[in-house]
């Protein structure tokens, strides 16, 4: 498991940097990430089915599963914590195979996602669920780049600074949630 120090990572990051990450690593992300959740994933999948291009170049990008609450005046965004990643599992392997570098969410992933993470040298980060006010402070700006009609579910481009995440699945096939589930305190 990773070291206790926090790794600072500029995103988008190179494949080499992402492959070095290991489960349990605490990472602060700075740079550009994109948001997409259920409805945006469904629409992206339909777009690909029709043989059309995605509304943004997903190659090398980190996608954050998040739909914010509305921003109060003068703020870049409202509350902005992760949603459950499990619901995106159906669409994720295809996006990873297209070059998506990684994901931020919370919750368990399928075997198909784990395999796609390994196959593509990707990474799955968890942010703390239910800490949307705190996480919003690490978001510097937010801009809708596609599917504006979906409201909170639109695709947004975010600039983040020291956005705190933990590596839950890595390119070596590590799965932090599985390790936790297999280690009840009664066995220690």
């Amino acid at each position: 498991m990773g070291s206790s120090d926090v790794i600072s990572l500029q995103v988008p990051a190179s494949p080499e940097e992402l492959k070095k990450l290991r489960i349990g690593d605490a990472v602060n992300l700075s740079g550009t990430i994109y948001t997409a959740r259920d409805a945006a994933h469904k629409r992206m999948d339909e777009t690909l089915e029709r043989g059309e291009e995605l509304p943004f170049d997903i190659r090398g990008q980190i996608v954050y599963y998040m739909g914010p609450s509305p921003a109060r005046p003068g703020r870049p965004i409202g509350s902005a914590g992760p949603t459950t990643a499990t619901r995106m599992d159906r669409y994720t392997p295809r996006l990873l195979d297209l070059g998506m570098a990684g994901m931020i969410g919370k919750g368990k992933r399928s075997k198909a996602v784990a395999d796609a993470v390994v196959r593509n040298g990707g990474v799955y980060f968890a942010a703390v669920g239910g800490a949307g006010a705190l996480l919003s402070k690490a978001i510097v700006s937010s801009e809708v780049v596609a599917y504006d009609d979906l409201g909170t579910e639109a695709i947004r481009k975010l600039e983040v600074k020291d956005f705190p995440v933990i590596v839950v699945m890595d390119a070596e096939g590590g799965d932090l949630y599985a390790e936790v589930g297999n280690n009840p305190l009664t066995n220690k």
């Binding site: 998040m66 609450s69 109060r72 409202g78 902005a80 914590g81 949603t83 949307g132």
Partner: peptide
């Protein structure tokens, strides 16, 4: 932060 700045505790 939620209470002081009136940002919902959770976005959901």
């Amino acid at each position: 932060i939620a209470g002081e700045e009136m940002i919902p505790i959770c976005q959901d």
